[in-house]
């Protein structure tokens, strides 16, 4: 069987197996898995509101998934999506608060550019450190995550903070807010999803069709051969980190522009780290990542409904963990599939 089919089959089989295994857990706690999964499905797709909130949850996950996945393709493990997302959102907010005088056609793209640039610049620090000193990006991006977290909680309480309760910035200018696709009850379905999908398509084209993509993937697969082929490794490391950071920055920026309309201390909420799981489930393929993000988004949204029928929503964490385990250990799935075929043949 060819690789493309495998890349497609493994995640799907993994999801099915994860649901089956988790149903045993649900049975063990004395609940009916069919009822639980029906509620899960209804919670994610049962109403317009449900679908809207799935899409809202999915949007940033696509972008952080892309950020991590793109890094992986270039041989870099960017754990810093979380910090880059925070930096992107924070600096984009600082910009967007002050653009009331601009028309939306200018303010919207400019805010995105600022957010992406902030994420890119922040990630490039790790890139430069790796290229110049060999410092491993896993270590440096984790350190940068903490810097971003504490810096942002300072900024959002002292210089930029307003009001009481959760630390938050003032609202951004109306011209920088993303127009909603539609409004369901009080929930605005953000048009950020369109930006995220476009980003995935662009990343796909860059990776598969361009000379730069050839160099980046080549460096990721075999840096020695890349160097032998005249590819400048250090330049490509910095560039790949910057692009990865730009995607994370955009994830944060869209949250500000489309959902919260302001910067919050709790804005990232682990979505940067979710990007790692999503890249893994999507097999680092931009289009696969869209579906992986959608899967995560719907599991999270649906889990609330599951809670109503008496199944703790944390069950979806088990589902999620088993999916990741099976995808990462894809040999298990392959072996099971091959066994099945053999049994049939004999």
């Amino acid at each position: 069987m060819n690789n493309r089919l495998w890349a497609f089959l493994v995640p799907i089989i993994s999801v099915i197996m994860a649901l089956l295994i988790s149903s045993v857990v649900i049975l063990l706690i004395g609940q009916d898995p069919i009822v639980a999964y029906a509620a899960l499905f209804k919670g994610a797709f049962g109403s317009k509101l449900a679908i809207a909130s799935v899409i809202i949850k999915t949007t940033p996950l696509i972008l952080t998934g892309l950020a991590v996945g793109f890094g992986f393709r270039a041989g870099l493990f960017n754990i810093g999506a979380e910090g880059q997302m925070v930096m992107g959102a924070m600096i984009a907010t600082a910009f967007a608060i002050n653009v009331a005088w601009m028309p939306a056609v200018l303010a919207i793209p400019l805010t995105m550019v600022v957010g992406m640039a902030a994420g890119a610049g922040y990630a490039a620090i790790a890139g430069v450190l790796k290229a110049k000193t060999g410092a491993h990006e896993v270590v440096t991006t984790i350190m940068l995550n903490w810097i971003a977290e504490y810096l942002s909680s300072y900024v959002v309480t002292v210089p930029m903070g307003v009001g009481f309760g959760t630390p938050k910035s003032p609202e951004i200018a109306n011209s920088a807010k993303l127009p909603p696709l539609m409004t369901v009850q009080a929930t605005e379905l953000t048009s950020g999803i369109i930006v995220a999908v476009i980003a995935a398509v662009v990343i796909y084209i860059v990776l598969e069709k361009t000379t730069k993509g050839y160099e980046l993937k080549g460096t990721g697969f075999n840096p020695y051969a890349a160097e032998y082929g005249g590819i400048k490794i250090s330049q490509n490391i910095v560039l790949a980190m910057a692009i990865s950071g730009a995607l994370s920055g955009l994830a944060g920026t869209l949250e500000v522009m489309g959902v919260h309309h302001r910067f919050l201390g709790t804005l990232s909420g682990g979505k940067g780290f979710d990007g790692i799981s999503i890249a893994l489930i999507g097999q680092n393929n931009p289009i696969g990542i869209i579906f992986a993000a959608l899967l995560m988004g719907s599991l999270r949204t649906g889990s609330n409904e599951m809670q109503f029928v008496g199944v703790p929503k944390h069950i979806i964490l088990i589902v999620q963990a088993i999916i990741i385990f099976l995808v990462a250990a894809d040999r298990i799935v392959r072996t099971i599939l091959i066994r099945k075929k053999r049994v049939k043949a004999s």
């Binding site: 000379t211 050839y214 080549g218 697969f221 020695y224 051969a225 890349a226 032998y228 082929g229 005249g230």
Partner: peptide
Amino acid sequence: HKYGLILQYPAYYNMILGRHY
């Protein structure tokens, strides 16, 4: 294996390594 080829690339990609641009 170390320098001459990117083993994960198809043959036609390997055939332009160094002149891919």
